[in-house]
Design a protein around this nucleic acid. Structure first.
Lengths: 247, 247
DNA sequence: TGCCTGTAATTACTCCGACAAATTGATGGT
DNA sequence: ACCATCAATTTGTCGGAGTAATTACAGGCA
């Protein structure tokens, strides 16, 4: 729970970048999604809360506005600000997603996320195979090359992985898919950090990606669908396989 | 609690419910998603903007925080608050969705939304067929009865339609699907209002829903998938068929 | 010329203190 | 017992003042 020394500086930098109200929102947000504030629970009044946090009432109010915009809380005059029921949370909001997977790799939610990915990405790949334009192929190819030269163990490699999926989704031409997957991809990449640290991946994920790319380039929707389904399934296995069963 | 009609009074009530900062956020939000403020454009400074709107800087700032939380704008010191690129908008946020479809039934986005629904809902129905519990079946059955007694022309009927889909998604057991479809369903229901007004639906959508329900009750994933796919396809046809080609 | 550094100006950010509005719960009257 | 009214509490709104950060420009240096 104590933040390691290496992260203290990064924390401070992040806090400044988030502008106080943002960092307050983040702190309250993780407290909510991690269950420290339970649904239905009433937060402290604005005056006492802002006083306890040593910030002005305005800054605290802006933080609450952010959380309310993401469906985490609801404030009403006279009654106060209470934590919303989880079914009202905007789980696909990139910030909420990051707050969830930043500290709490909850098993159920992780499985649900991959289930969603398994539903959406194969179909997106099929659409991409039908609609992809030359620039999409170029972007995907660049990402594949970057994945080949780096690895998932380093930041650049994970970024390339994200870039590949992002380019593919863009090629699908559906604005909602683009909006959804950008945040989901970031959350998955975040969990990959832990995964790589605890139980480094042996299998090379590059061939799976190449197969998807080939199918998209060949304008074969069914093959793209199958290849992407296979990729996501394997990724889930990689993520959930028991830690370090060396043998 | 049916809203009698669009009235000035209802608007005023809604404004009060949104608490000024919420109504400002809504106004700015629709202005952005409708293109009146273009991506990359710089909004007026806080002082001039709040002065022009005749509100305090605090209220305006809270509105901007809401929009920033939904990815519509980005504000930085010294440069100001600028409209984000559309690919950064949180399109699946319920508020953003409602702002988009409240005034601008953009053809492309509507098709994209149904495409998303076509991807997600059949698979969700299949999952529901595997995981549904008695309470889910009861909720779906109640919704079907309500759909039968009312019609899509009245608010109660549309609500029942939404309830049916919501119950089915809940039965899928995937938290992210639940979070996504709640807002999507509301947006689609909103477009249905226009649709019903301009070109009333002849076909009775109830049998399609019943087929989905039967498949889920029978725990037949494939049948549920097919029935739901058929339902969504027909719904899109109903929505996009040429207006009033009576003959 | 080209790059680097320091500085100034602009803008959002934060704070403070006060009052208004709304809703709940109690209180009093019928 | 019921209804209307009032008071208290909490969020909502307001205005102004000062702070911090970032850009852009100017100047020095190679």
């Amino acid at each position: 729970m104590a933040s390691p020394a290496w992260s203290r500086k990064a924390d401070a930098r992040a806090r400044r970048a988030l502008r106080l109200h943002g960092s307050i929102a983040r702190d309250l947000g993780v407290a909510i999604v991690s269950g420290r504030y339970k649904p239905g629970e009433l937060l402290n009044g604005e005056v006492s809360a802002s006083d306890r946090l040593q910030v002005s009432r305005g800054a605290y109010r802006e933080a609450v506005r952010i959380l309310a915009a993401k469906g985490l809380v609801e404030s009403r005059p006279k009654v106060g600000t209470r934590v919303s029921q989880p079914e009202n949370w905007h789980l696909l909001d990139p910030d909420v997603l990051s707050w969830i997977f930043e500290f709490e790799p909850d098993r159920k939610l992780l499985v649900d996320l991959f289930e969603l990915r398994n539903i959406v990405e194969p179909r997106a790949a099929a659409l991409a195979a039908q609609r992809r334009k030359p620039e999409h192929l170029e972007a995907m190819e660049r990402a594949l090359e970057a994945m080949a030269s780096h690895t998932l163990a380093v930041e650049a490699g994970r970024q390339a992985d994200q870039d590949f999926h992002a380019a593919l989704i863009h090629a699908s031409g559906n604005a909602f898919l683009v909006s959804m997957i950008s945040g989901v991809g970031a959350a998955i990449a975040w969990t990959t950090v832990f995964k790589q640290r605890d139980n480094p991946l042996q299998r090379d994920p590059l061939p799976d990606h190449v197969r998807v790319f080939e199918a998209v380039r060949a304008q074969d929707p069914d093959a793209a669908h199958a290849a992407m389904e296979n990729l996501v399934d394997l990724a889930l296995l990689d993520m959930t396989e028991p830690p370090n069963r060396t043998r």
